[in-house]
Nucleic acid binder design. Sequence first.
DNA 1: CACCAGGCAAGTA
DNA 2: TACTTGCATGGT
Length: 211
Amino acid sequence: MLHDIFTRLFAHFAPQRWWPGETPFEVMVGAILTQNTNWQNVERAIAQLKSTVAFTPHAIFALPPAMLAAAIRPAGYFNIKTGRLRNFLTYFVERYNGNVETMRQQPIAQLRTELLGVRGIGPETADSILLYALDKPVFVVDTYTQRVLSRHYLVPEETTYDDVQSIFMDSLAHDVRHFNEYHALLVAVGKTFCRRTNPQCEQCPLKGVNW
DNA sequence: CACCAGGCAAGTA
DNA sequence: TACTTGCATGGT
């Protein structure tokens, strides 16, 4: 059934080509900045940050917090996100010397535990980093995923993050490219047809699914 | 004007 | 444990 949903979405939408970002480290930063925030605003923030300092873990951490906050201001919650970014950078630099390839070599379960231990990184941000920055076969769940599934009565609305994730990871092959495209397509269908205000259910490519 | 966007943590009872 | 609230910009 999850395979059928993917087939419908893939037939309807063009490839999403997630995650936007020139480097894995940039994807990590974007994952934190995009929390409850429109991606367009994240792009502004990243652009401003790039024009402020060299886009490396050490350089960004060396930036005075007030300047970091000013740079990422367009992404919203800039004081909160400044702290969260610095928490992550502390972890990334202290444990991996800011080296993506070194981090990538660790086991998935260990990395997920480490990331969840950083204050400001919850399950979605952790999994986004694992999948989109480190190429780990982890399925990313977000509010659109939950909403699309529950609107089609595939899961109860109150299903937890980990349970939704298990539904996907227990029935699909653990393929990075597939998980990448699938999550992005769920966001696409959620945005386009499954909005709270002004839903467009009649034209949704998932119309009628209720296995 | 209201509402939303690729969440998370802290506070309250 | 189970809710609720704060965080904040920019687009529609």
